[in-house]
Simulated assay, not measured.
Amino acid sequence: MNKLIVLFALIFISISCKTEGGKSNYVLPTSTGNTNKILVVMKGNDWEGKIGDEIRTVFGEHQVGLPQPETLLSVSQIDPVGYKGFVRNSKAVLIIREGEQEKIAVEKNKYASPQILVYATAKGKDGLVNLIRNRGKEIIQLFKDEDIKFAQNIFKKEKIDETKFKTIKNLGISLTIPKRFNLVEDNGEFLWLRQHLKSGIARGDGTNNILVYSYPLEDESKVADNITTMRDVIGEKYIPGSKEGMYMITEQAYTPFTYDAEIDGKKTYETRGKWEVKNDFMAGPFINYSIIDKENNRVLVFEGFTYAPSVNKRDFVFELEAIAKSLKIN
């Protein structure tokens, strides 16, 4: 009788561990790989040929606003026969394959978690070249969106209590900011937080900085044109250099790029460029989000800027982007 009870218990456990789709409901391994990096699964001959050239061209485009040339995403390749075992646990994978119908398909958390697999399918090699050329930006955005979520989930685990900042409370917003950011200034209208870059997803010497403030919305059609002017006003007022007469300004030799974006469902202008300190040699990249908040008749600004001499800065700016995109208006 005892043996029968044990047998029935084992059968019950086995059945209960099945999902409705018939797959085992087990815990997936943790994915491997860093943000802004993808693994491309395709044949070596194709990687060295026209398809690989097109992938390197599209994915190798330089990120706007960085002092040193850095690609949008870092790409590595593996042959399909080698895509097995622990290699399949890679966090971001682009799988190139031939088929009768051109399509892009997405599968998440198949072999590990978090994980995104993007399948790019087209007819023949020329079809694959055209697919990457015409829809490469779409593929890149799929990977970047997942990277943003990945970073934000990490930040949530080490989230600072932003309600202790007067400016955050007065502006009526919330942000997912890691605890490693320290307060520089908080006067109720302007918030400045700073992280020393010796910890976090991206590491190095220097600092990552967050600025949060708002100003009245007077003419929505002029907001985009006034972004650099407004940040220069803020820089002179709040971001001093090492000596009198020195303060942060938009680098005059480099024109920032502004794009349409959206944060918390609101029209937003994303601006990427370079900052410098007037009459000094300090400089670096910045990313600015100017949010049109019509309900409160204001422009809400989140800006991040990085100072990290002599090292690549793409991943530092990416962290600031992930924090900015967590912003919610309460």
Score class of each variant (00 low, 15 high):
His196Pro: 00
Tyr215Asn: 05
Arg194Pro: 01
Leu217Arg: 11
Gly127Asn: 09
Trp192Cys: 01
Ser174Cys: 00
Phe165Thr: 01
Leu197Gly: 04
Gly200Cys: 05
Ser214Ala: 14
Lys137Phe: 15
Glu158His: 14
Arg133Ile: 10
Gly127Gln: 03
Asn153Glu: 15
Ser214His: 14
Tyr215Phe: 12
Gly200Glu: 07
Leu142Val: 12
Asp145Gly: 00
Thr163Lys: 15
Thr176Leu: 10
Thr176Val: 15
Thr176Trp: 10
Arg133Gly: 14
Lys169His: 09
Asn187Ser: 01
Lys198Tyr: 08
Asp219Ala: 15
Gln152Val: 06
Ile154Arg: 12
Trp192Leu: 02
Asp186Tyr: 05
Leu175Ile: 09
Ile148Thr: 08
Leu183Lys: 01
Ile177Met: 04
Arg194Gln: 14
Arg133Leu: 15
Gly136Lys: 12
Leu142Trp: 05
Asp219Arg: 13
Arg135Ile: 02
Lys137Ala: 15
Lys137Asp: 15
Asp161Gln: 04
Ala202Arg: 09
Asp205Phe: 05
Ala202Asn: 05
Ile177Arg: 07
Gln195Ala: 01
Ile201Gly: 12
Lys179Arg: 14
Gly172Ile: 07
Gly200Asn: 07
Lys179Phe: 10
Ile168Ala: 08
Phe143Ile: 06
Phe150Ile: 10
Val129Gln: 05
Pro178Thr: 08
Gln152Glu: 13
Ile139Trp: 00
Phe155Pro: 13
Ile140Phe: 06
Glu158Cys: 07
Glu185Ala: 00
Leu197Cys: 09
Lys159Val: 10
Ile177Asn: 11
Leu175Ser: 04
Gly204Lys: 03
Pro178Met: 10
Leu211Trp: 11
Phe143Tyr: 07
Lys149Val: 15
Asn187Asp: 12
Asp145His: 10
Gly136Val: 08
Glu138Trp: 06
Pro216Leu: 08
Arg203Met: 07
Thr207Pro: 01
Asp147Gly: 06
Arg135Gly: 07
Ser199Lys: 06
Tyr215Pro: 12
Asn187Arg: 00
Asn182Glu: 00
Arg180Cys: 06
Leu171His: 05
Lys166Val: 00
Lys157His: 03
Gly200Tyr: 01
Asp186Trp: 01
Gly206Lys: 02
Glu218Ile: 15
Gly172Tyr: 09
Gln195Glu: 14
Leu142Ile: 15
Glu158Ile: 09
Ile201His: 03
Asp145Asn: 14
Thr167Lys: 09
Gln141Lys: 15
Lys156Asp: 11
Ile210Tyr: 04
Lys198Arg: 10
Asn134Thr: 15
